[in-house]
Design a binder for these strands. Structure first.
Lengths: 186, 186
DNA sequence: TGTAGGAGCTAATCTAATTAGCTAGCTTGC
DNA sequence: GCAAGCTAGCTAATTAGATTAGCTCCTACA
């Protein structure tokens, strides 16, 4: 029979799509194999098991998220850059809940880990926002963590269906952008 | 042989302790059973499977977290209440990373779900903080979500070892408390 | 056109959750 | 004090899923 001719990238993309469509927790090797038209043991020719696959999905997600926010922030500065970053971030998470969920528990294996580089690049975007607010260098790490926590928290709660109440989520998100804006001013 | 005489509560507590000690992802029915001195199928007399067990751990965690923050906030108001809430929240997560992790993906099954009630009680604590800042009623839901997102994000990232950089985490957390304080003022 | 490498396969193993059905320890009513 | 019923806990078996071993044969390249 003819070979499928797959690459590791194909496998990761298929897995990420499945995670987006059916939920990160429902991701199995069998489902990925089925979608690619092969048997699950064959996946091991391309990736190093489920843990590796999840790690790669996280890397893909952070990379894409970094690109999306970077694109959205082009030509903006100050509060506009903050809003652009925030909206792009949220759009990505809404469009790719499975990919984003993969990032929640992901840990770096070391400084050579592609996930590390992708994360650093995403943090660069946030740092650019912060410079627009004149955050001092010695506060930069703290501010980075605060911003990251805030948006990550919103995204994680939304991805987990954690918000149950009446008020509109889009409005809440806009409110939060202003909240962050006030928090960053002196 | 004599019976162990277990209750559902015993099972959940044992499981929560295991999650705290060895990591939420390493929680298995066998480990829980072993710690309780019974065989894993016997657990099903008390709980309804692993998914139910996880849900109950989340409920336990949110309940305990609600009590801890409530206690810490007693006799405080305004920015002091915010700081008291935040520090109690973080202490709990540091002491019980496994329990807290259980809450990250937990969803309510309905308004009768004990997790729902526990969450409502925790949100009450946050609402009390917000009233101290004079947040208008029509903004209350948005502000609640923003605060919750911020602290949840920090806790989730820390529980997942998501912060890798140099700066001290305690300092970052204090910085974030002030950041939130500024964000809540007008 | 021959061959080396590796993609994909089947078969088998292992771990973990879960279900079925049995046994016997407590509790309650007499 | 004792019999009956409830049910906690047990063993055995099933299922799903990840992973490993080892084979085959397609494909790229000399």
């Amino acid at each position: 029979m003819p070979r499928a001719g797959l690459t590791a990238e194909d496998v990761v993309t298929a897995a990420a799509d499945i995670a987006d469509e059916t939920g990160y927790d429902n991701l199995t090797m069998s489902l990925v194999a089925e979608r690619l038209g092969i048997r699950s043991p064959s996946l091991y020719r391309h990736i190093d098991g489920l843990a590796d696959l999840r790690h790669r999905i996280a890397t893909l997600a952070i990379t894409e998220l970094g690109e999306a926010t970077r694109d959205a922030m082009l030509g903006t500065a100050g509060p506009d850059a903050l809003a652009a970053f925030a909206r792009a971030f949220r759009s990505y998470v809404l469009a790719h809940p499975g990919r984003y969920t993969a990032t929640i528990g992901a840990e770096f294996t070391g400084p050579e880990d592609p996930l590390f580089k992708a994360s650093a690049r995403l943090l660069d975007s946030i740092a650019a926002v912060l410079r627009g607010y004149g955050i001092a260098a010695d506060e930069m790490d703290h501010a980075l963590r605060a911003i990251r926590s805030t948006f990550h928290g919103f995204a994680a709660l939304q991805a987990a269906n954690g918000f149950q109440w009446s008020a509109d989520l889009d409005e809440s998100f806009d409110w939060m952008i202003h909240f962050v804006d006030r928090g960053l001013r002196r």
